[in-house]
């Protein structure tokens, strides 16, 4: 399999999700992540990509390697130009959903991450960075 990193994939409907999961799967494998970390990566990617589909309708993910302090990892950056999140503090709490979800995607992805950043501006969009280091 050819290693295509960095790679940017468009996320504009539910049909984009399998491709995102597959690309993250391949990128993680090529870095040598173990099975549990690989599952965490794909689960977080699935949460964050579905949020774009549900709440922002159109966006993208960039999959790239991350290196620093003698470690290697994978960085996933999700960006959209959707409505943004007005109360980010609440959105990061378990159980907060403006849809019919369980409100677990954002706080859960943060728990799965080694590094997690979120930045959102109402009317402009949302950017989420998820990093997992190889142990």
């Amino acid at each position: 399999m050819t290693e295509q990193v960095p790679q940017t994939l468009r996320i504009d409907d539910e049909a984009s999700l399998p491709a995102v999961r597959r690309a993250v799967d391949e990128a993680g494998r090529s870095l040598g992540f173990g099975l549990v970390d690989q599952t965490k990566l794909m689960t977080a990617a699935s949460e964050l990509a579905r949020n774009i589909v549900l709440y922002a309708w159109d966006g993208k993910v960039t999959i790239e390697h991350s290196a620093g302090a003698g470690r290697r990892g994978l960085r996933l950056t999700f960006e959209d130009g959707g409505p943004g999140i007005s109360d980010l503090e609440r959105a990061m709490q378990d159980g907060y959903s403006t849809g019919k979800g369980m409100g677990l995607g954002l706080p859960g992805a943060k728990r799965l991450a080694h590094e997690f950043f979120i930045d959102s501006k109402p009317g402009i969009g949302t950017r989420v960075v998820f990093v997992l280091w190889r142990r």
């Binding site: 378990d94 369980m102 992805a109 799965l112």
Partner: peptide
């Protein structure tokens, strides 16, 4: 359920 899935679900909070 696969063990790695169970572990991830717990961390996700589900």
């Amino acid at each position: 359920m696969r063990p790695e899935v169970a572990i991830t679900m717990v961390e996700l909070g589900m």
